[in-house]
Simulated assay, not measured.
Amino acid sequence: MKKRILITGAAGFLGSHLCDRFIKEGYHVIAMDNLITGDLQNIEHLFPLENFEFHHHDVSKFVHVAGALDYILHFASPASPIDYLKIPIQTLKVGSLGIHNLLGLAKAKNARVLIASTSEIYGDPTVHPQVESYWGNVNPVGPRGVYDEAKRFQEAMTMAYHTFHGLETRIVRIFNTYGPRMRLNDGRVLPAFIGQAIRGEDITIFGDGSQTRAFCYVDDLVEGIYRLLLSDYASPVNIGNPDEITIKAFAEEIIALTGSNQKVVYHDLPVDDPKQRQPDISLARELLGWEPKVSRKEGLERTYAYFKTLTAEQLNKKDHKDFSTYSK
């Protein structure tokens, strides 16, 4: 019998790549998404497959899946500032009601759960690079708090089910990731820069550009998640690329990559925006034998090649959902 896996947020950037990987590994994939920020175009190539099924559903409501389940990957959540600032309550609900529903489902099905946490649980860090034992520096009532605290609660609820119910759980803390199928207009640094370069717009930097990020190519991230799911480790694990770069230097790389001649313009830094972001991946190396393989140069070339294949309509695509119906 094929192993059966439920992947929530399956029509999103990361979720769709995870669907691809588990189909490739021979699993029966049950994809679930309410399509607030996801796009069916990301998974439409899987619809003809016998081992793939899609459920249009909001996991903040009761989740039912017929038949056996071996694994659950919970990746349903708005992940970009543009999204979670527009739908803050929905963001909190998917990180609280959503995780509760899925942990309950896992308990009923005796399935192992892996949840997608984030480097944002570290907030604007006072420890650098960020190691899993660091508890973070988060403003719970700031504009980013709806996302940061949703993820922190999600980790706490997951660990409670692990310790109280003995549920098999895994927690991945994801650092900045990029690759094909990202939304160019989602407000994050890398897709924003590439989108601006392709459209011939000025490159916009918030702050003075001295803040840092570390970018991981999506294939590397998926490999790390796959290994973590099949491991026997229940506590959080950082998965990301420790190759740190300043935002200013990164903008210069994008300009060189795209062959554009845009100027860089500066705006005020948003409230609580992290000044430094770099994962300590010592634990992932030790436990999983994992580290990123794709260099930023190679990953950016692959990503840029993908975006160059998109139509003008796709490049300029804005939010395809009316968020107002989801913010109650």
Rank of each mutant, 00 (worst) to 15 (best):
K2D: 13
G9L: 09
A11Q: 09
G12S: 12
S16Q: 06
C19T: 13
I23L: 15
H28R: 15
V29T: 13
D33E: 15
D33V: 13
L40T: 14
Q41G: 12
N42E: 02
E44F: 08
P48S: 04
P48L: 09
F54Y: 15
H55C: 15
H56E: 15
D58R: 05
F62R: 15
F62M: 14
G67I: 12
D70E: 12
H74K: 07
H74Q: 10
A79I: 11
S80C: 05
I82P: 02
I82L: 11
Y84Q: 04
I87C: 09
I89P: 00
T91M: 02
L92I: 11
S96G: 06
I99K: 02
H100D: 09
G104W: 12
A116P: 02
T118C: 06
S119N: 12
S119V: 10
I121R: 03
I121M: 08
G123T: 02
G123D: 02
D124T: 09
P125M: 06
T126N: 05
H128N: 00
P129W: 08
V131R: 13
G136I: 05
N137L: 01
V138Q: 03
N139S: 07
P143Y: 08
R144T: 10
R144P: 05
D148P: 08
K151S: 10
K151L: 12
R152Q: 14
E155K: 01
E155G: 10
T158N: 07
H162F: 06
T163V: 07
F164L: 10
L167H: 03
T169R: 01
P180Y: 00
L190Y: 05
G200Q: 06
E201N: 12
I203M: 10
I205D: 08
I205N: 07
I205L: 15
G209W: 01
G209A: 05
F215V: 00
Y217K: 01
V218I: 14
E223I: 05
G224K: 01
Y226T: 07
R227N: 01
L228M: 09
L230I: 06
L230F: 13
D232M: 10
D232A: 05
S235N: 08
S235C: 08
P236L: 07
N238E: 00
I239C: 04
I245H: 03
T246C: 03
I247F: 09
A249P: 04
F250C: 05
F250N: 00
E253H: 10
L257Q: 09
Y266G: 14
L269M: 13
K275F: 11
D280A: 01
I281W: 03
L287D: 00
E291K: 01
R296Q: 12
R296I: 15
G299A: 03
G299R: 03
G299T: 04
L300F: 12
A305G: 07
A305K: 00
A305Y: 04
F307N: 02
L315D: 02
K318V: 06
H320E: 12
H320F: 09
K321M: 11
